[in-house]
C-alpha cells in the first residue's frame, strides 16, 4: 500500500457495493420499468380474462391473487437479478477480480443480494399499487410485518438464485434455461400448505401462506405462533445458506477445472 493509502474496512465495502447498486438502478431504469410493464400486462390479462371466464368467482378471490402475484414478482425479480448478476460477473471477468481481493466475493455477493431485495421491493410495491387500482381492491396490512414476512420468504429464493448462479459459473450457457425456473415459483406461491403440510419446507410456500394472512387479515408478526415464525426463518436461512454453499462448491469446481473466467 502506498504511503497515503489507508485500509478500507467492511463499512466502506458495504457503502461501495450498495452505492454501486443504487447508481445502476437510478442510472439505468429501463430494466426496472420494463419489468413493471410486463408484470402489469400479465396481471391485466389474468384479471380481465379471469373476469370474462369466471366472473364473480374471480372477484371473491382477487385479494389472494393480488397478494400471490405481488410475492411472485418479488421472488422472480430477486431470483433473476442475483442469478443473472453472477452470470454477468463471470462473463465480464470481474468475478475473478472479486475473488482475488482481501474481502473475497462472499460479502460482496451478500450485499448484492440485500441490494437486489431492496430494489425488487421498490418495483414490486409499485406493481402492487397498480394492481390494487386496476382491480379496485384494498388491503389493510401492517407495513413492517409485510416487509419482514415477504423479505424472509424471498430470502429462500435468493438462495436458489445463488445456486443457479453457481451452476452458471460451471456450465455457462445453462443460465438462460435456469431463468425458466422463476415460472416454477408460481406453484410454490400457491402451494396448498394446509392440505399438504410438508410443502412448508419448500422455498416461498410457508412464507406465501403467512403473507396472505398478513395482507388480507391484517395479522401482525407477534400474532403468529413462534413455530410458524421459526419455520419462516429456518427456511430462509436454510435455502440462502444452502444456495450460497452450492455457489461456493461450483465456483471451487470451476477453479479446479480452470473454467472460472471462461465464457
Amino acid at each position: 500500500m502506498s504511503a497515503e493509502a489507508t485500509s478500507a474496512g467492511y463499512l466502506t465495502l458495504i457503502r461501495a457495493v450498495l452505492y454501486r447498486e443504487a447508481l445502476l438502478f437510478i442510472r439505468y431504469p429501463a430494466n426496472a420499468i420494463g419489468g413493471i410493464v410486463v408484470a402489469l400486462f400479465f396481471f391485466i390479462v389474468v384479471f380481465y380474462g379471469g373476469q370474462l371466464l369466471a366472473g364473480q368467482a374471480l372477484d371473491d378471490s382477487i385479494e389472494g391473487i393480488v397478494i400471490g402475484y405481488f410475492l411472485w414478482t418479488l421472488s422472480a425479480g430477486a431470483y433473476a437479478s442475483i442469478s443473472n448478476d453472477i452470470g454477468s460477473e463471470v462473463q465480464w471477468g470481474t468475478l475473478e477480480r472479486h475473488i482475488t481481493t482481501p474481502f473475497g466475493f462472499a460479502p460482496v455477493a451478500f450485499l448484492k443480494g440485500v441490494a437486489k431485495l431492496i430494489r425488487t421491493f421498490v418495483t414490486s410495491t409499485i406493481i402492487l399499487g397498480c394492481m390494487l387500482v386496476i382491480s379496485g381492491t384494498s388491503l389493510e396490512f401492517a407495513p413492517l410485518t409485510t416487509i419482514i414476512v415477504a423479505g424472509l420468504s424471498v430470502s429462500s429464493v435468493l438462495g436458489v438464485g445463488f445456486a443457479a448462479g453457481g451452476v452458471t459459473v460451471l456450465y455457462k450457457r445453462i443460465g438462460s434455461w435456469l431463468g425458466l425456473l422463476q415460472f416454477g415459483f408460481v406453484g410454490l406461491v400457491s402451494a396448498p400448505v394446509l392440505a399438504v403440510p410438508s410443502l412448508r419446507y419448500l422455498p416461498l410456500a410457508h412464507g406465501s401462506a403467512m403473507l396472505q394472512q398478513v395482507m388480507r387479515d391484517g395479522t401482525r408478526l407477534w400474532e403468529f405462533s413462534p413455530g410458524a415464525v421459526g419455520l419462516l426463518i429456518a427456511v430462509a436461512v436454510g435455502y440462502l445458506g444452502g444456495g450460497y454453499l452450492i455457489f461456493e462448491l461450483t465456483t471451487q469446481r470451476a477453479r479446479k477445472l480452470g473454467v472460472l473466467g471462461d465464457y
Binding site: E4, T6, S7, A8, T12, A16, R97, T101, P102, V108
Partner: peptide
C-alpha cells in the same frame, strides 16, 4: 475499496 484501500485516501 474491494482491494482493501479506502477510496478517499
Amino acid at each position: 475499496t474491494i482491494s482493501g484501500v479506502h477510496p478517499d485516501s
